[in-house]
């Protein structure tokens, strides 16, 4: 076992333990904290798999931004202590069954026909032998080991054309050493703007729609206030229970009292 192998096992174990913590914690905030641990462990795994940029993104976006959202939502809903799911026997049995099936599948997969160990450190020749995806390169191309397989197009395009399918496909081979020689972020960027430029642009649309949704679904439109006032005028207003006033942002009361009274000391 090399250093990297040991670290993979440690990070993997941490990921599993923290993932279990997410579903088994009795308080939502502990679940959220376990999720942070899970995401950081995954970032370490990405790092060990030679995906430095992805590791950084994982920490910045998930452990950073997404977790902020989670914590805000927990604060927004302010849920109390939940029943521990462990006490529900059916949930326990169901969970155990899922774990069993998943483990079985992966054991089957590891012993299966294609997946083989030792990929990251293998030489280019063994990779070509081990992964069926690379077999197509062998079939159409003399199996010479390209020192810079980042010229992926040269390998893949002739085969694509030979098969009379669409030209211009990028079947790109990446060997870790070559990637690191050029720079991990640089290679990611290069791929993002060549092979994956369409998904990249769709992402911007997706983010725009998400922004519209976040604003639309949470804003208080004139129509909503009118409807709320109409509803409130039909039945007598409920006396607000002291001490546990609802946050006005989510309160189902008309806006007028919230806007005038109730100085909110945050």
């Amino acid at each position: 076992m090399t250093q990297a192998d040991i670290l993979i096992y440690i990070a993997g174990a941490l990921a599993v333990v923290s993932a279990a913590g997410v579903v088994m914690s009795s308080q939502p905030i502990y679940s959220a904290l376990s999720l942070v641990g899970n995401m950081v462990s995954l970032a370490v795994l990405f790092l060990l798999l030679n995906a430095q940029f992805l590791a950084a993104v994982q920490v910045i976006v998930y452990a950073g931004a997404v977790m902020v959202l989670f914590v805000f939502i927990i604060a927004l809903l302010s849920p109390g202590r939940e029943d521990s799911p462990l006490r529900d026997r059916r949930a326990l049995i169901g969970g155990a069954a899922i774990v069993y099936v998943t483990v079985q599948i992966f054991v089957l997969a590891t012993n299966g026909t294609t997946y083989k160990k030792g990929l990251p450190t293998a030489t280019c020749a063994t990779i070509r032998e081990a992964v069926p995806a690379y077999r197509l390169i062998q079939a159409g191309q003399p199996a010479s080991c390209n020192p810079f397989p980042l010229h992926g197009n040269e390998n893949a395009v002739p085969i694509a054309q030979a098969n009379n399918s669409a030209a211009g496909l990028n079947g790109v081979l990446f060997f870790p050493d070559d990637v690191n020689r050029v720079g991990n972020v640089q290679v990611t960027g290069g791929q993002l703007f060549t092979t994956f430029v369409l998904p990249f642009e769709i992402t911007s649309l997706l983010l725009l729609v998400a922004a519209v949704g976040a604003v639309y679904l949470t804003r208080r439109s004139p129509g909503r206030e009118r409807a709320e006032q109409a509803r409130a005028s039909r039945r007598p207003p409920l006396p607000a229970p002291a001490g546990e006033s609802l946050g006005p942002g989510v309160a189902a009361s008309p806006k007028a009292p919230a806007a005038t009274g109730e100085p909110e000391s945050a």
Binding site: F148, N170, G190
Partner: peptide
Amino acid sequence: LLATQNLQFPP
């Protein structure tokens, strides 16, 4: 080294 990437933009 960057030149080794040989980027091919979609037409």
